[in-house]
Design a protein around this nucleic acid. Structure first.
Length: 416
RNA sequence: CGGGGCGUGGCUCAGUUUGGCUAGAGCGCUUGAAUGGGGUUCAAGAGGUCGACAGUUCAAGUCUGUCCGCCCCGACCA
């Protein structure tokens, strides 16, 4: 992609509306823009990052035999009345009437919808176990949306649901998804803590939340200074670790995932049953597994930035390489830059070519701000001896070498 | 919802205390020139319902009232 053909509105100064680091960089690097509190437009760069996260999630969910679906965001309120959650969820759910006066809502989550679907299609133990998941926009009328994408009223979530005939099956799926989550977050470049948690409105007994430590996080976590075990924070929390008696340290964190062993709450309420091998009618045992996909963008920025801007983990970067063409009025520099662009593009490497007529300093600052892992710089030096310059955004290492060697260094950074 | 802060061109802000001529600066944008490796320099331009409405006044960005929006803290939260 050519910079001049896309929309990357970088900002030199910190917008008034942003206080947290991830919110500031989200806006400054031109990833997203606010429409109103809690609702954001994703610009080309932000969408590419979002798609990269989704790709990782899809790969890992498929690897534990999840099958992707897409359920409606538009839902009949009646289903929520049947599960009893209509009241529990209360004003967090957006509600309205259609033209016929039918009561509708926008889905804040999808347990009811998936259970209703499954009820009509699963009738035998032979069809179990099953995991279905989707990546979809959720709507929650938050009391206080804040920190950019971290708490939004419209956001993108991956929600998965497991269906089993017994508790053993649920335990197995729960563990499989738990492990898949750890792989997902690692690939996203996140240092994540898995914590036993309250299941709250979701119901069920066991739940784990996945927390990312971040200075501007809105949740708090306690970590044992000795065994590093993390526990969720509440006001009357112990000051010492129950296991090793060492002191606990409070850190701020962002919750990016939450998984629950639901049991039969929804299958009983909505009548999702199956016949076991002996012909007994039993409720399906369920689990549900959520990831805040759009929230990951903010969490990743919180954990991967420096004074110059974002430092994207390899797999999330909106482009793998940015070619910084210094002096676009110089036809030789542009010829070399375009050639390089074509060459990398043919190799399947995603490249952004900065073809703007801007000063070198502006381009360097913007390249650092965007956080694309590898910068290739084409300037006067390249004309003299055919050399290229590579800047590694992560290590800040700079190499000026013949093209062949630079391409090797590039390959090592992309594939290695 | 309670407390606090803010709202002036695309962005950052000054001006509001103490009302006074045609509303300013920097960045960005357009045009021209010089420059060309870490947010250049000079010149000439374009761009504004001063968040909205109502009121006070000879006169309102500035004072009063109501409302709207954004941010932060709290409560809440899957």
């Amino acid at each position: 992609m050519l910079w001049s053909k896309t929309l990357i509105p970088t900002l030199k100064e910190i917008p008034q509306e942003a206080e947290s680091i991830s919110h500031q960089l989200l806006l400054r690097a031109g990833l997203a823009r606010m429409l109103m509190a809690g609702a954001y437009s994703y610009l080309p760069l932000g969408l590419r990052v979002l798609e990269n996260i989704q790709k990782i999630i899809i790969e890992e969910m498929n690897s534990c035999f999840g099958a992707q679906v897409l359920l409606p965001a538009l839902q009949p309120l009646e289903l929520w009345q049947r599960s009893g959650r209509d009241k529990d969820i209360g004003e967090v759910m957006f509600r309205f009437n259609d033209r016929r006066g039918r009561k509708l809502c926008l889905g804040p989550t999808h347990e009811e919808i998936i259970t209703e679907l499954i009820k009509n299609h699963i009738s035998s133990y032979k069809q179990l176990p099953l995991i279905l998941y989707q990546i979809q926009t959720k709507f929650r009328d938050e009391i206080r949306p804040r920190f950019g994408l971290i708490r939004a009223c419209e956001f993108i979530m991956k929600d998965a649901y497991s269906f089993d005939q017994d508790e053993e099956g649920l335990d197995k799926n729960y563990l499989a998804v738990h492990q898949a989550y750890l792989r997902i977050f690692k690939r996203c470049g996140l240092d994540v803590l898995s914590i036993e948690a309250d299941s709250g409105v979701m119901g069920g007994k066991v739940s784990h939340e996945f927390m990312v430590s971040a200075k501007d996080g809105e949740d708090a976590v306690l970590i044992c200074s000795a065994c590093k075990r993390a526990v969720s924070f509440n006001e009357d929390a112990d000051r010492f670790c129950v296991k090793c008696k060492a002191s606990l340290q409070k850190i701020n964190a962002i919750e990016i995932g939450h998984i629950f062993k639901l049991g039969t709450k929804y299958s009983l309420a909505l009548g999702a049953n199956f016949l076991d091998a002996k012909g007994n009618l039993k409720p399906i045992i369920m689990g549900c597994y959520g990831i805040g996909v759009s929230r990951i963008i903010s969490a990743v920025i919180e954990q991967n930035h420096d004074n110059d801007g974002i430092v994207w983990p390899k797999e999330l970067a909106p482009y793998q390489v940015i070619i910084t063409a210094l002096d676009v009025t110089n036809t030789d520099i542009m010829r070399i830059s375009s050639g390089l662009y074509e060459e990398l593009d043919a190799l399947g490497i995603s490249v952004l070519l900065d073809d703007r007529d801007e000063r070198a300093g502006v381009k360097f600052k913007d390249a650092d701000l965007l956080g694309i892992p590898v910068q290739l710089i084409v300037g006067k030096g390249s004309l003299r001896d055919g050399s290229l310059e590579l800047k590694d955004r992560i290590t800040k290492e700079k190499l000026i070498k013949p093209k062949a060697e630079i391409l090797k260094g590039l390959a090592r950074r992309i594939h290695g």
